[in-house]
Amino acid sequence: MSEPAFTVADLGGTTLRTARYDTGTGALTDIRRTPTDGMARHPGAPVPELQDRVVRQLADLTAEAVGRHGSTALAVAFAGPVTADGRVVTAPTVWGERGDPLPLRLRLEERLGLPVVVVNDLTAAVWRYVTGTGEQPFCLITVSSGIGSKVYRAGEVLLDPEGHGGELGHWTCDPSPHAPLCDCGGRGHLGGIASGRGLQAAARRAALADPDGYARSYLGLAAPAADLLDNRTLVAAIRADDPFATAVLRGGLAHLASAVTSVFTSIGVRRFVLMGGFALAVGPRFARLLTEEIERLGCFGLTTEEIRRMVVLGAPDDDHGLIGAGRLLAARSAARQAVTVA
Protein backbone atom coordinates (compact mmCIF):
# COMPACT_ATOMS: atom_id res chain seq x y z
CA MET A 1 0.00 0.00 0.00
CA SER A 2 1.47 3.33 -1.05
CA GLU A 3 2.00 6.13 1.44
CA PRO A 4 -0.63 8.91 1.39
CA ALA A 5 0.22 12.21 -0.30
CA PHE A 6 -0.42 15.72 0.95
CA THR A 7 -0.77 18.92 -1.01
CA VAL A 8 1.28 21.75 0.44
CA ALA A 9 1.20 25.47 -0.35
CA ASP A 10 3.42 28.38 0.60
CA LEU A 11 1.83 31.79 0.13
CA GLY A 12 4.26 34.72 0.32
CA GLY A 13 4.10 38.38 -0.56
CA THR A 14 5.64 37.74 -3.98
CA THR A 15 5.04 34.10 -4.89
CA LEU A 16 2.45 31.39 -4.26
CA ARG A 17 3.90 27.89 -4.42
CA THR A 18 2.13 24.54 -4.44
CA ALA A 19 3.55 21.01 -4.43
CA ARG A 20 2.87 17.35 -3.68
CA TYR A 21 4.50 16.07 -0.48
CA ASP A 22 5.24 12.35 -0.31
CA THR A 23 4.81 11.25 3.30
CA GLY A 24 6.97 8.19 2.76
CA THR A 25 10.06 9.88 1.32
CA GLY A 26 9.52 13.49 2.37
CA ALA A 27 10.13 14.53 -1.24
CA LEU A 28 8.39 17.31 -3.14
CA THR A 29 7.09 16.85 -6.65
CA ASP A 30 4.88 18.87 -8.99
CA ILE A 31 6.22 22.17 -7.62
CA ARG A 32 4.45 25.09 -9.23
CA ARG A 33 4.95 28.81 -8.71
CA THR A 34 2.80 31.78 -9.62
CA PRO A 35 2.83 35.48 -8.61
CA THR A 36 0.67 36.11 -5.54
CA ASP A 37 -2.43 38.08 -6.49
CA GLY A 38 -1.92 40.57 -3.65
CA MET A 39 -0.61 44.07 -3.14
CA ALA A 40 2.50 43.55 -5.26
CA ARG A 41 0.28 43.06 -8.33
CA HIS A 42 -2.48 45.46 -7.29
CA PRO A 43 -0.85 48.36 -5.41
CA GLY A 44 -3.35 50.64 -3.77
CA ALA A 45 -6.23 48.18 -3.85
CA PRO A 46 -8.30 48.09 -0.61
CA VAL A 47 -7.58 45.32 1.90
CA PRO A 48 -10.94 43.49 1.50
CA GLU A 49 -10.46 43.30 -2.27
CA LEU A 50 -6.93 41.95 -1.88
CA GLN A 51 -8.09 39.39 0.67
CA ASP A 52 -10.75 38.15 -1.73
CA ARG A 53 -8.28 37.96 -4.60
CA VAL A 54 -5.70 36.02 -2.59
CA VAL A 55 -8.17 33.58 -1.03
CA ARG A 56 -9.79 32.89 -4.40
CA GLN A 57 -6.40 32.32 -6.02
CA LEU A 58 -5.23 30.03 -3.22
CA ALA A 59 -8.47 28.03 -3.20
CA ASP A 60 -8.47 27.60 -6.99
CA LEU A 61 -4.85 26.51 -7.23
CA THR A 62 -4.93 24.16 -4.24
CA ALA A 63 -8.18 22.58 -5.48
CA GLU A 64 -6.48 21.83 -8.79
CA ALA A 65 -3.40 20.49 -6.98
CA VAL A 66 -5.45 18.27 -4.65
CA GLY A 67 -7.10 16.75 -7.70
CA ARG A 68 -3.77 16.04 -9.38
CA HIS A 69 -2.15 14.67 -6.23
CA GLY A 70 -4.99 12.56 -4.87
CA SER A 71 -4.32 14.23 -1.54
CA THR A 72 -5.80 13.33 1.83
CA ALA A 73 -5.01 16.73 3.40
CA LEU A 74 -3.68 20.22 2.68
CA ALA A 75 -1.16 22.30 4.62
CA VAL A 76 -0.74 26.02 3.93
CA ALA A 77 2.23 28.10 5.06
CA PHE A 78 1.05 31.72 5.13
CA ALA A 79 3.10 34.94 5.30
CA GLY A 80 1.53 36.48 8.40
CA PRO A 81 0.51 35.71 11.99
CA VAL A 82 -1.93 32.78 12.18
CA THR A 83 -3.98 31.69 15.20
CA ALA A 84 -4.07 28.12 16.49
CA ASP A 85 -7.40 27.55 14.71
CA GLY A 86 -6.14 28.76 11.32
CA ARG A 87 -7.31 32.38 11.22
CA VAL A 88 -4.97 34.84 9.50
CA VAL A 89 -4.54 37.85 11.78
CA THR A 90 -2.77 40.12 9.32
CA ALA A 91 -0.57 39.86 6.23
CA PRO A 92 1.59 42.98 5.72
CA THR A 93 3.45 41.72 2.64
CA VAL A 94 0.30 40.24 1.04
CA TRP A 95 -2.42 42.84 1.56
CA GLY A 96 -0.69 45.55 3.58
CA GLU A 97 -2.55 47.21 6.41
CA ARG A 98 -4.43 45.11 8.92
CA GLY A 99 -7.96 44.08 7.98
CA ASP A 100 -10.45 41.81 9.69
CA PRO A 101 -9.13 38.38 10.79
CA LEU A 102 -9.58 35.91 7.95
CA PRO A 103 -10.85 32.36 8.71
CA LEU A 104 -8.66 30.84 6.02
CA ARG A 105 -8.72 27.25 7.27
CA LEU A 106 -12.52 27.14 7.36
CA ARG A 107 -12.86 28.70 3.90
CA LEU A 108 -10.45 26.19 2.37
CA GLU A 109 -12.05 23.21 4.12
CA GLU A 110 -15.47 24.29 2.82
CA ARG A 111 -14.10 24.54 -0.71
CA LEU A 112 -11.93 21.39 -0.73
CA GLY A 113 -13.81 19.01 1.55
CA LEU A 114 -10.70 17.67 3.26
CA PRO A 115 -8.66 18.51 6.38
CA VAL A 116 -6.63 21.72 6.13
CA VAL A 117 -3.86 23.05 8.38
CA VAL A 118 -2.90 26.73 8.12
CA VAL A 119 0.18 28.01 9.92
CA ASN A 120 2.55 30.94 9.63
CA ASP A 121 5.12 30.38 6.90
CA LEU A 122 8.04 30.54 9.32
CA THR A 123 6.29 28.18 11.73
CA ALA A 124 6.09 25.71 8.86
CA ALA A 125 9.66 26.31 7.70
CA VAL A 126 11.03 25.60 11.18
CA TRP A 127 10.04 21.94 10.80
CA ARG A 128 12.39 21.54 7.86
CA TYR A 129 15.28 22.09 10.27
CA VAL A 130 14.09 19.93 13.16
CA THR A 131 16.20 16.80 13.04
CA GLY A 132 14.84 14.83 16.00
CA THR A 133 14.43 14.66 19.75
CA GLY A 134 16.85 16.66 21.85
CA GLU A 135 17.11 19.33 19.16
CA GLN A 136 19.23 22.34 20.12
CA PRO A 137 16.98 25.43 20.35
CA PHE A 138 17.24 27.67 17.32
CA CYS A 139 15.75 30.78 15.78
CA LEU A 140 14.83 30.73 12.10
CA ILE A 141 14.95 34.16 10.44
CA THR A 142 13.80 34.94 6.92
CA VAL A 143 14.97 37.99 5.02
CA SER A 144 12.94 38.36 1.84
CA SER A 145 10.02 40.71 0.98
CA GLY A 146 9.79 41.25 4.73
CA ILE A 147 11.45 39.80 7.82
CA GLY A 148 10.02 37.06 9.99
CA SER A 149 11.29 34.78 12.72
CA LYS A 150 10.29 31.81 14.81
CA VAL A 151 11.97 30.13 17.78
CA TYR A 152 11.96 26.35 18.17
CA ARG A 153 12.55 25.04 21.67
CA ALA A 154 11.72 21.85 23.59
CA GLY A 155 9.83 20.27 20.71
CA GLU A 156 7.63 23.19 19.72
CA VAL A 157 7.54 26.59 18.05
CA LEU A 158 7.08 29.30 20.66
CA LEU A 159 3.72 30.94 19.89
CA ASP A 160 0.61 31.88 21.80
CA PRO A 161 -2.84 30.69 20.62
CA GLU A 162 -3.51 34.02 18.87
CA GLY A 163 -0.39 33.66 16.74
CA HIS A 164 1.76 36.19 18.60
CA GLY A 165 5.47 35.55 18.72
CA GLY A 166 8.32 35.52 16.25
CA GLU A 167 7.44 38.78 14.50
CA LEU A 168 10.85 40.43 14.67
CA GLY A 169 10.05 42.14 11.38
CA HIS A 170 7.58 44.38 13.22
CA TRP A 171 9.90 45.32 16.06
CA THR A 172 10.29 49.11 16.03
CA CYS A 173 14.03 49.55 15.75
CA ASP A 174 13.93 53.17 14.53
CA PRO A 175 11.49 55.33 16.56
CA SER A 176 12.19 58.54 14.64
CA PRO A 177 9.12 60.24 13.09
CA HIS A 178 10.51 59.98 9.56
CA ALA A 179 11.68 56.36 9.77
CA PRO A 180 10.97 54.17 6.71
CA LEU A 181 7.46 52.82 6.34
CA CYS A 182 6.75 49.12 6.80
CA ASP A 183 4.25 47.29 4.57
CA CYS A 184 1.96 47.04 7.60
CA GLY A 185 1.71 50.85 7.75
CA GLY A 186 3.97 51.31 10.78
CA ARG A 187 7.23 53.23 10.78
CA GLY A 188 10.71 52.13 11.74
CA HIS A 189 9.97 48.40 11.77
CA LEU A 190 12.87 46.03 11.18
CA GLY A 191 11.16 44.59 8.12
CA GLY A 192 10.82 48.03 6.54
CA ILE A 193 14.53 48.67 7.04
CA ALA A 194 16.47 45.41 6.68
CA SER A 195 14.31 43.27 4.34
CA GLY A 196 14.92 43.00 0.61
CA ARG A 197 12.31 45.67 -0.07
CA GLY A 198 13.66 47.82 2.76
CA LEU A 199 17.24 47.62 1.55
CA GLN A 200 16.25 48.41 -2.03
CA ALA A 201 14.49 51.55 -0.76
CA ALA A 202 17.54 52.38 1.39
CA ALA A 203 19.84 52.07 -1.63
CA ARG A 204 17.65 54.46 -3.61
CA ARG A 205 17.67 56.97 -0.74
CA ALA A 206 21.46 56.66 -0.49
CA ALA A 207 21.76 57.30 -4.23
CA LEU A 208 19.79 60.54 -3.91
CA ALA A 209 21.83 61.62 -0.88
CA ASP A 210 25.20 60.87 -2.54
CA PRO A 211 24.74 60.99 -6.33
CA ASP A 212 28.50 61.12 -7.03
CA GLY A 213 29.22 58.07 -4.85
CA TYR A 214 26.33 56.21 -6.45
CA ALA A 215 27.52 57.08 -9.97
CA ARG A 216 30.97 55.62 -9.19
CA SER A 217 29.54 52.42 -7.74
CA TYR A 218 28.57 49.13 -9.34
CA LEU A 219 24.97 50.17 -8.77
CA GLY A 220 25.38 53.42 -10.70
CA LEU A 221 26.88 51.57 -13.66
CA ALA A 222 24.09 48.96 -13.72
CA ALA A 223 21.22 51.36 -12.97
CA PRO A 224 22.21 54.98 -13.80
CA ALA A 225 18.85 56.26 -12.49
CA ALA A 226 18.20 55.31 -8.88
CA ASP A 227 14.55 54.51 -9.55
CA LEU A 228 15.72 51.75 -11.92
CA LEU A 229 17.63 49.99 -9.15
CA ASP A 230 16.19 46.58 -8.29
CA ASN A 231 17.16 43.89 -5.79
CA ARG A 232 18.87 41.72 -8.38
CA THR A 233 21.32 44.54 -9.08
CA LEU A 234 21.73 45.27 -5.36
CA VAL A 235 22.49 41.61 -4.60
CA ALA A 236 25.03 41.42 -7.43
CA ALA A 237 26.77 44.56 -6.15
CA ILE A 238 26.96 43.22 -2.59
CA ARG A 239 28.34 39.89 -3.79
CA ALA A 240 30.96 41.83 -5.79
CA ASP A 241 32.00 43.69 -2.59
CA ASP A 242 30.94 47.07 -3.96
CA PRO A 243 31.58 49.59 -1.12
CA PHE A 244 28.43 51.65 -1.76
CA ALA A 245 26.09 48.65 -1.81
CA THR A 246 27.84 47.00 1.13
CA ALA A 247 27.42 50.16 3.22
CA VAL A 248 23.68 50.08 2.50
CA LEU A 249 23.49 46.45 3.60
CA ARG A 250 25.49 47.11 6.77
CA GLY A 251 23.03 49.86 7.69
CA GLY A 252 20.21 47.33 7.69
CA LEU A 253 22.27 44.57 9.30
CA ALA A 254 23.07 46.78 12.28
CA HIS A 255 19.38 46.64 13.21
CA LEU A 256 19.08 42.92 12.45
CA ALA A 257 22.12 42.20 14.61
CA SER A 258 20.51 44.12 17.46
CA ALA A 259 17.42 41.90 17.11
CA VAL A 260 19.58 38.76 17.18
CA THR A 261 21.39 39.83 20.32
CA SER A 262 18.05 40.65 21.96
CA VAL A 263 16.77 37.12 21.28
CA PHE A 264 19.96 35.65 22.69
CA THR A 265 20.03 37.77 25.82
CA SER A 266 16.30 37.25 26.53
CA ILE A 267 15.95 33.47 26.06
CA GLY A 268 19.45 32.11 25.47
CA VAL A 269 19.06 30.86 21.89
CA ARG A 270 22.47 30.84 20.27
CA ARG A 271 21.79 29.19 16.89
CA PHE A 272 20.27 31.34 14.14
CA VAL A 273 19.36 29.90 10.72
CA LEU A 274 18.95 32.40 7.87
CA MET A 275 16.65 31.85 4.91
CA GLY A 276 14.60 33.99 2.53
CA GLY A 277 15.18 35.09 -1.03
CA PHE A 278 17.32 38.13 -0.30
CA ALA A 279 19.58 36.59 2.36
CA LEU A 280 20.18 33.41 0.37
CA ALA A 281 20.78 35.36 -2.85
CA VAL A 282 23.58 37.34 -1.15
CA GLY A 283 24.75 34.04 0.34
CA PRO A 284 27.71 33.54 2.71
CA ARG A 285 28.57 37.23 2.58
CA PHE A 286 25.23 38.07 4.20
CA ALA A 287 25.91 35.71 7.11
CA ARG A 288 29.48 36.99 7.45
CA LEU A 289 28.51 40.66 7.54
CA LEU A 290 25.69 39.97 9.99
CA THR A 291 28.12 38.09 12.23
CA GLU A 292 30.50 41.05 12.13
CA GLU A 293 27.70 43.34 13.31
CA ILE A 294 26.80 40.90 16.11
CA GLU A 295 30.48 40.81 17.16
CA ARG A 296 30.52 44.60 17.23
CA LEU A 297 27.52 44.66 19.57
CA GLY A 298 28.63 41.66 21.61
CA CYS A 299 26.56 38.91 23.24
CA PHE A 300 26.79 38.99 27.03
CA GLY A 301 28.61 35.89 28.26
CA LEU A 302 29.74 34.59 24.85
CA THR A 303 33.27 34.56 23.48
CA THR A 304 34.11 35.83 20.01
CA GLU A 305 34.48 32.25 18.76
CA GLU A 306 31.05 31.34 20.12
CA ILE A 307 29.51 34.37 18.42
CA ARG A 308 31.10 33.35 15.12
CA ARG A 309 29.29 30.01 15.26
CA MET A 310 25.84 31.51 15.88
CA VAL A 311 24.67 32.32 12.34
CA VAL A 312 24.30 29.75 9.55
CA LEU A 313 22.58 29.81 6.17
CA GLY A 314 19.60 27.58 5.45
CA ALA A 315 19.24 25.37 2.40
CA PRO A 316 19.81 27.33 -0.86
CA ASP A 317 16.29 26.98 -2.28
CA ASP A 318 12.81 28.39 -1.72
CA ASP A 319 11.17 25.14 -0.60
CA HIS A 320 11.40 25.77 3.16
CA GLY A 321 7.70 26.41 3.72
CA LEU A 322 6.61 23.55 1.46
CA ILE A 323 8.86 20.94 3.05
CA GLY A 324 8.18 22.21 6.55
CA ALA A 325 4.40 22.25 6.00
CA GLY A 326 4.53 18.67 4.77
CA ARG A 327 6.60 17.49 7.72
CA LEU A 328 4.35 19.32 10.19
CA LEU A 329 1.20 17.84 8.66
CA ALA A 330 2.75 14.36 8.66
CA ALA A 331 3.69 14.73 12.34
CA ARG A 332 0.18 15.87 13.27
CA SER A 333 -1.40 13.02 11.30
CA ALA A 334 0.87 10.50 13.00
CA ALA A 335 -0.04 11.94 16.41
CA ARG A 336 -3.77 11.68 15.64
CA GLN A 337 -3.34 8.07 14.49
CA ALA A 338 -1.47 7.23 17.69
CA VAL A 339 -4.27 8.70 19.80
CA THR A 340 -6.86 6.74 17.82
CA VAL A 341 -4.98 3.48 18.27
CA ALA A 342 -4.51 4.15 22.00
Rank of each mutant, 00 (worst) to 15 (best):
A245V: 12
T291Y: 03
E97M: 10
P175Y: 07
V88G: 02
R105V: 01
A342G: 15
L11C: 15
P81K: 03
A9W: 01
A179M: 11
E162K: 07
L249A: 15
L297Y: 00
G326F: 00
E162C: 11
A206V: 09
Y218A: 15
E162W: 14
V54L: 12
T14G: 04
S71Y: 03
A45L: 10
V47I: 11
L328D: 02
P4M: 06
L190K: 07
H42T: 10
Q57L: 08
G67F: 00
D318I: 05
G252C: 09
T83F: 00
V151L: 15
F272D: 02
T7D: 01
P175I: 14
Y129S: 09
V66E: 00
R41V: 14
E293M: 11
L74H: 04
L328N: 02
P35W: 08
P115R: 08
D183K: 09
G99Q: 06
P92W: 14
P46C: 02
C139D: 04
G12C: 10
A19Q: 05
Y152P: 09
A237F: 01
E156Y: 01
F264W: 06
V339F: 05
P101I: 12
I193E: 12
P175T: 13
T131Y: 02
P137E: 03
R17V: 01
F138S: 03
V76K: 11
F264R: 08
T142A: 14
G191Q: 10
V88A: 02
Q51D: 11
V47F: 05
V130H: 04
R41P: 04
L16H: 11
L114H: 03
L122M: 13
R309K: 13
T133L: 10
L61N: 08
V55L: 11
E49F: 00
L181T: 06
R111I: 05
E135N: 02
P177M: 12
G26F: 01
P211W: 06
R309P: 00
G163I: 00
E306F: 05
E306S: 14
S266C: 13
A91M: 09
S217F: 04
T340Y: 09
C299V: 15
R232Q: 08
L102G: 06
P103A: 11
T72H: 04
G67L: 07
I238D: 05
V248G: 14
G70I: 13
A342D: 12
L289T: 12
S333H: 13
G155F: 04
A245H: 05
D319Y: 02
G80M: 05
A124P: 04
L234E: 11
T265V: 11
C182D: 13
C139T: 14
A65Q: 15
G165N: 06
D85C: 02
A84W: 00
L221T: 15
V76C: 04
V89K: 02
H320E: 15
P48S: 10
I307L: 05
A330T: 14
I307C: 07
G12E: 10
V117F: 01
G188D: 12
V126K: 10
L290R: 13
V273A: 06
A63C: 05
A27E: 15
A207K: 07
V248I: 13
L58R: 04
A257K: 09
H170W: 10
H189L: 12
D160T: 13
C184W: 09
R41T: 13
S262E: 07
L289I: 13
D241F: 01
L289A: 07
T93W: 01
R87L: 04
L253D: 08
F278D: 06
